[in-house]
């Protein structure tokens, strides 16, 4: 961080559960070290902001972030990374969107910590926090930001109902303590959690027939509850879910090709991949990443993480689990005089 300060370079950084780099030779590099991409964005076209959540509620935090984003540019868009396992990230996003316009483009992730699920970090060249977020606010009139997201997980077994919850903390499922319910149904050890929760998320069923995947990222052994990155209301109906294996690669391929057809221009790509995808596909994760990289053939940097943020089609920006999320950065030509 000191070196970056010394050279006057702004740093937009996040810890992860694995790093991704598509190098100049056309090879995919995955490692447990660090990857770095240097980009030359005019200072007038971006603002880097780190905000610490401290004791703020997600409402206040989200609205403060939203206010900063709104004030900076007439048409802003945002690359972001959150730290703070067990925090309600979806609520923060909702509050940002209350302050900005509902169609604000946001892409990013919930930072990882190499599957320890203890402490993830986000940082700039000056500050670092394990409970907050960094925002790279872009002037959308000069730097285009666009993206897509896809999942592929399938529901398993019968439906259950959340019978007691508060915000993102689920304490009872079918009137049984949530932690006991989860451990009993999957026949796992309590010690396997929360890590195994990344692979077997709940598939939340909405009344309009759509669904969302929600992965556990923290547990409360004392209160026997499961903690997620998004609110899950009492009465929510869900089933367990699992990856169908390599089939998810096929789904990604279809979606990437369709997205490429409409968005062929890019100068830099960010890839946010749920770590669960790597756990589900093993060495074949390269295939999925390479598919995206070779389509655009521009520098690609990314990471495996515990949750993704994306704006998919006409939907507002949302928090996702188990997703393959791409964000494309494009320098827009200056308007002719």
């Amino acid at each position: 961080m000191d070196s970056f300060q010394q050279y006057g370079i702004n740093l937009f950084g996040t810890t992860s559960a694995g790093e991704i780099l598509f190098d100049s030779d056309g090879d995919i590099m995955l490692n447990r070290g660090a990857v770095l991409v240097l980009t030359d964005i005019p200072a007038s076209s971006f603002q880097l902001q780190l905000l610490k959540m401290d004791n703020f509620t997600q409402d206040v935090f989200g609205k403060e972030a939203g206010e900063i984003i709104k004030q900076r540019f007439k048409e802003p868009s945002v690359l972001t990374s959150f730290s703070g396992l067990g925090k309600n990230i979806q609520a923060v996003i909702d509050n940002i969107l209350i302050k900005t316009r509902s169609q604000l483009k946001m892409y990013g992730c919930l930072a990882g910590d190499d599957l320890k699920l203890e402490k993830a970090l986000v940082f700039t060249e000056k500050e670092i926090t394990d409970c907050g977020a960094i925002f790279l606010i872009l002037d959308d009139e000069k730097i285009g930001l666009n993206g897509m997201t896809t999942s592929g997980w399938n529901g398993l077994g019968t439906d259950f109902t959340v019978t007691h919850s508060e915000e993102n903390v689920v304490s009872e499922i079918d009137n049984i303590p949530a932690l006991d319910f989860y451990v009993n149904y999957l026949n796992i050890l309590e010690e396997d959690l929360p890590m195994i929760g990344l692979e077997y998320p709940l598939m939340i069923k909405h009344q309009d027939g759509t669904f969302s995947l929600r992965a556990i990222n923290k547990i409360d052994k004392e209160k026997r509850s499961l903690i997620f990155s998004s609110s899950i209301k009492s009465g929510t109906v869900f089933s367990f879910s699992a990856s169908p294996g390599f089939e998810i690669l096929e789904k990604t391929r279809e979606k990437v090709i369709a997205f490429y057809e409409k968005n062929q221009s890019a100068d830099l790509m960010f890839l946010y991949s749920a770590v669960a995808r790597q756990l589900a596909t093993g060495p074949l994760i390269n295939t999925e990443i390479k598919l995206a990289a070779i389509k655009w053939r521009v520098p690609l940097v990314g990471c495996f993480n515990y949750g993704e943020i994306a704006k998919d089609n006409d939907q507002p920006s949302k928090f996702y689990n188990q997703s393959f999320t791409l964000a494309l950065l494009t320098e827009k030509p200056a308007p002719s005089l």
Binding site: L156, G157, T158, N184, Y185, L186, N187, I188, I196, Y200, F240, A242, G245, A280, G282, P283
Partner: peptide, 21 residues
């Protein structure tokens, strides 16, 4: 190798889910 080890890992969980279902 990955498929075998993943299969073994998933087997217990999926069997349990199947039995419970």
């Amino acid at each position: 190798d990955f498929q075998v080890s993943k299969g073994l890992k998933d087997k217990n969980i999926l069997n349990s889910l199947l039995a419970k279902t």
